[in-house]
């Protein structure tokens, strides 16, 4: 791949909390429209990785390059306008605002350029249209996560970071969510998908990176990962660090 074709380039990313290394030199690349799964045991640094890329945390080393420019240290609201957006592991909608207002804000302030988003169509496609005029606090947790996704999509991101979106969805909803993400990727949106449900990872991602204790221990397809002795040990062995 030519270097310019990369949408996201993450190199030797480090993040420390006190003396603890939550990210210990993580590197990977993403192409436009590519879906990378980020998997690993609890506490392996998946959310931290999303937090650093999305600007919520400053990194302590390494770099993040988006569309050829370094973005580490850039404020979150600027990253949103550059075309990076995310969901949150525990949903963080604006609770007292209506569902519609939640997406209006990000469409108005965070739009990354290109055609305006049809917000009603967006809510309908995520099965939130029936709740459009209800306060976000009236939604259940899975719906709130979906609202986080809607809010992210309303900015028309080119890179979407998804943190455990599938938790709390029933099997039918899971399938529909997987199809939605796949459709977005096929239209060119790159994604980093953090998920514990391997069936979901299998349906949505092109390849995976496996993290353990802040380090990548594997990169490749999910099928290969399930054969990898290190990966098996980390997931089944209840090993160190996790």
């Amino acid at each position: 791949m030519s270097p310019d074709a990369k949408l996201l380039h993450v190199e030797k990313l480090e993040k420390r909390f006190g003396g603890f290394r939550a990210l210990d030199g993580v590197s990977f690349d993403l192409l436009p429209g590519e879906v990378l799964g980020l998997v690993g045991p609890n506490g392996s640094g998946k959310t931290t990785c999303i937090n650093v890329i999305s600007g919520l945390y400053g990194g302590d080393g390494g770099q993040v390059v988006f569309e050829g420019a370094r973005i580490d240290g850039t404020a979150m609201h600027k990253l949103a306008r550059l075309g990076i957006n995310r969901t949150f592991q525990s949903p963080k909608p604006f609770l007292s605002l209506t569902v519609r207002e939640n997406v209006e804000i990000s469409a108005r302030y965070g739009h990354a350029g290109g055609a305006a988003i049809d917000l009603d169509g967006l809510l309908a496609s995520l099965e939130l249209d029936a709740h459009a005029h209800r306060a976000a606090e009236d939604l259940n947790s899975a719906q709130q996560k979906t609202l986080d996704l809607a809010r992210a999509l309303a900015t028309a991101p080119r890179l979407l970071l998804v943190d455990e979106l599938a938790a709390g969805l029933n099997p039918a909803e899971l399938d529909r969510m997987a199809i939605r993400l796949r459709t977005l990727a096929d239209r060119g949106m790159a994604m980093l998908v953090v998920e514990h449900l391997m069936g979901f990872i299998d349906k949505v991602t092109d390849r995976v990176v496996v993290l353990n204790a802040g380090r990548e221990i594997f990169g490749g397809t999910l099928a290969q990962a399930t054969q990898d002795p290190d990966v098996i040990r980390v997931f089944l062995g209840g090993s160190h660090g996790g």
Partner: peptide, 23 residues
């Protein structure tokens, strides 16, 4: 819209920032 963005900041400054609002 500006008032709405302020309410968003008050509710959740992190989400507001990710929605593109300069907190």
């Amino acid at each position: 819209q500006f008032g709405l963005s302020l309410r968003a900041i008050k509710e959740d400054p992190i989400s507001a920032a990710m929605a593109g609002v300069s907190v």
